[in-house]
Design a binder for these strands. Structure first.
Lengths: 115, 115
DNA sequence: CGCACTTTATTAACGTGTTAATTAAAGTGT
DNA sequence: ACACTTTAATTAACACGTTAATAAAGTGCG
């Protein structure tokens, strides 16, 4: 699905964050999309090249930027969100609701252990 | 631990396979260590540069190679296997035996679903 | 035998994860 | 006001995952 949409999984995640939560600075995007800043820097460059996001300097703190999804960027999300959701619900169904939830719980525990 | 040993996680896996199962060809290593062949090609080059493996052409089928861990390569495993095991048993303990097993089961199911 | 097909391994190209170094802009304190 | 520290983002360097293309050796069948 992502290949057809012309974006990588990480680019998709960034676009979703921007679509769902509005314009924000790279550091916040990185947190939301679970990406390290150096990776995000490259991803934003690609997204900008593709015309899916724009960048603007934050005038109150000129180290910061404000990243916005363009209409084209939001269109990518809109055109694929249904399929994306269906893939996830299909997976949940195949695994079984209970086991699906258990899996997510255990993975979260695992993550928590590393802190 | 791996950084101290001077190998990556994937290089460690390759060395372990060779240490535990003896010399074998790249295709078999890739299966055992769950690596794609192009990745393995690079990894074997690095391991050879470090003097941890040697390559030999298989005379009965000259497309094939036989990869062997050197003494230095086996030493890396020997010097770190205890620590490696301890890290895993610690994890199992922190998570709890039952949950640990459930997690592995669910991840295996997830993998099976993708086939 | 010769030629198409398959298999083994490598190379290329691209994107990401990760750590360290770097640059620019804000803060901070004296 | 100016050195010092902190923060935001980028760049660099290296390794891996992944797909596609390529090269070399083996296989099979007319």
């Amino acid at each position: 699905m992502l290949a057809d949409a012309g974006v990588t999984e990480q680019q998709w995640r960034v676009l979703r964050v921007l679509d769902e939560e509005g314009p924000m600075d790279p550091t916040s995007i990185a947190e939301r999309a679970v990406l390290l800043l150096p990776s995000l820097t490259r991803i934003l460059q690609k997204l900008e090249d593709k015309g899916f996001v724009t960048r603007e300097r934050d005038d109150s703190d000129r180290r910061r930027q404000i990243i916005r999804a363009t209409q084209a960027g939001r269109n990518v999300i809109a055109a694929n969100m249904d399929t994306s959701r269906r893939i996830l619900t299909d997976l949940r169904e195949k695994l079984g609701d209970e086991r699906h939830e258990t899996l997510i719980e255990l993975l979260n525990e695992l993550t928590a252990l590393e802190e």
